[in-house]
Amino acid sequence: MRILAVCGMGLGSSLVLKMNIEKVMDQEGIKGTVDVKDLSSIQGEKADFIFASEEIGKKIDHPAEVISVKNMTDRNEIKEKVLTAAAKLSK
């Protein structure tokens, strides 16, 4: 599973997201990579899913499915969303 974590600068909230997503993937034994990107440089990037905050998520136009996260420090929300994504991909 290839995930992009996206925010305005590609340094702040996206990195928080990346760390929390990776933690879930480690715990659940999901294989894949999470890269951080800023809004301006996601075009042309290949990914299965894009994770972002709700406001940033609205602005993303990309072939990959965009998954908006309400509270990026809430590990339960992220866990649920990563598991759903992984399940979709294995279908």
Binding site: C7, M9, G12, L15, K70, M72
Partner: peptide, 23 residues
């Protein structure tokens, strides 16, 4: 760094970048 921090000071709170307050 975060991984190391969680081992050495498990009860510490993460201090995060300002856009986390925007929501």
């Amino acid at each position: 760094f975060q991984g190391i921090a969680e081992k050495i000071v498990p009860d510490a709170k993460p201090a995060l970048d300002c856009p986390i307050t925007f929501t």
